[in-house]
């Protein structure tokens, strides 16, 4: 019995080695070096990570306070401007996303209630309690309306049922505003219901080594027809800056099809999946982007976003004044360019 008792109580250090030291310099070094060997978008976003080390490292000393370290690390990751990169302390400082922008939208630049009361003919049919999957018809026009608020938490085959209801209309407004993403497979499946064939839309590469240019071979992704309904009439997709991640993957698919027009604001520009959660000895957590998404021509929309075909954005004041300019613009395009009455 002595052996197990000994092993239980005394050999953690012998087996695992010393635990990481919790001091400001070590916390900085762990985070910095973890990004250095895993973060995938230095090249795409034009970041010289080594240069940033020379700027930020001298600011951290053994006497650096938690508040000061938080400020330094958030400023460091702010340089990446990446919505999939964040720092979280679980306590007084809370959550900081690299893409946090005090001038960004609040989420109130769009209102499903306003759409329902002013622009839609019948009450929205909500598939889920959180109203992330809803559909209806535009008042006095032969146009269907779908709201897609997430790319997850629902069977994507839901789109087949909805298109079965809306297929008689001459056009569709597909509203994906304030949709922060979900899973790429969900996006591909929903987009497949609008597919007009197979198009090469993007590649994905995982970083697979410590060098900044260490990436696996690109995996190609194509559009594909899915489901038993296929809507091939004009589709206006309403977007805003809160659209990110799998929602932008959805747009990659959709914009490959004919008669699909993006109306609204530029999207977030965050394509990569996030890493598994990472941990620091001071109890903070963080995540970062681990993949590189490229368009078929080798360029990237990371940090750029999808540029709309028709640019327009709402303000909170517009919504408070009961006007959704983005929605109205989509109707205008359909009426004027596609002659839909």
């Amino acid at each position: 019995m002595l052996i197990p008792l000994f092993l239980l109580t005394s050999c953690e250090k012998a087996i695992l080695g010393e635990d990481e030291v919790n001091d400001p310099e070590n916390n900085f070094e762990i985070l910095y070096n973890d990004f250095k060997v895993h973060y995938a978008l230095f090249g795409v976003r034009g970041i010289d990570w080594d240069e940033l080390y020379t700027q930020y490292r001298p600011r951290v000393t053994a006497q650096t306070s938690d508040q000061e370290l938080w400020t330094i690390l958030t400023e460091l990751i702010k340089e990446l401007d990446d919505g999939h990169t964040f720092l979280y302390d679980g306590d007084k400082f809370g959550f900081y996303s690299s893409a946090d922008d005090p001038d960004a939208t609040t989420g109130d630049e769009y209102s499903l209630e306003l759409l329902e009361s002013k622009y839609l003919e019948r009450p929205l049919i909500h598939q889920t309690e959180d109203e992330e999957f809803s559909y209806s018809k535009v008042k006095d026009l032969d146009i269907g309306y779908i709201y897609l608020g997430s790319m997850d938490d629902q069977d994507p085959a839901w789109i087949d049922l909805v298109l079965g209801e809306l297929k008689q209309h001459k056009a569709l407004i597909l509203d994906i505003r304030d949709n922060g993403g979900g899973t790429d497979s969900f996006s591909a499946r929903v987009a497949g219901a609008f597919a007009d064939g197979e198009h090469f839309v993007y590649t994905v590469q995982n970083r697979n080594g410590p060098g900044y240019n260490d990436f696996e071979a690109p995996r190609k992704f194509f559009t594909k027809k899915e489901g038993n309904e296929s809507f091939r009439k004009p589709v206006m997709i309403l977007t805003d800056i809160n659209d990110a991640s799998a929602t932008e993957i959805f747009l990659l698919h959709m914009k490959a099809f004919e008669d699909v027009v993006q109306v609204g604001d530029v999207t977030g520009g965050d394509f990569s999946d996030s890493s598994s959660r990472r941990f620091l000895p001071n109890g903070w957590e963080y995540q970062y982007s681990v993949q590189k998404y490229l368009l078929p021509d080798g360029t990237s929309l990371d940090g750029v976003g999808h540029i709309p075909d028709v640019f327009i954005k709402n303000t909170v004041a517009d919504i408070q004044a009961s006007q959704d300019k983005v929605f109205e613009k989509a109707l205008q395009v359909l009426c004027e360019d596609y002659n839909i009455k």
Binding site: H38, A40, T183, D184, S185, V204, N206, R207, N208, G209, R219, D273, S274, S275, S276, V290, Q291
Partner: peptide, 13 residues
């Protein structure tokens, strides 16, 4: 084990 960067599409899905 997980891939180099701890995450890929296979793991995610």
């Amino acid at each position: 084990r997980p891939p180099y960067n701890g995450f890929d599409k296979t793991t995610a899905e």
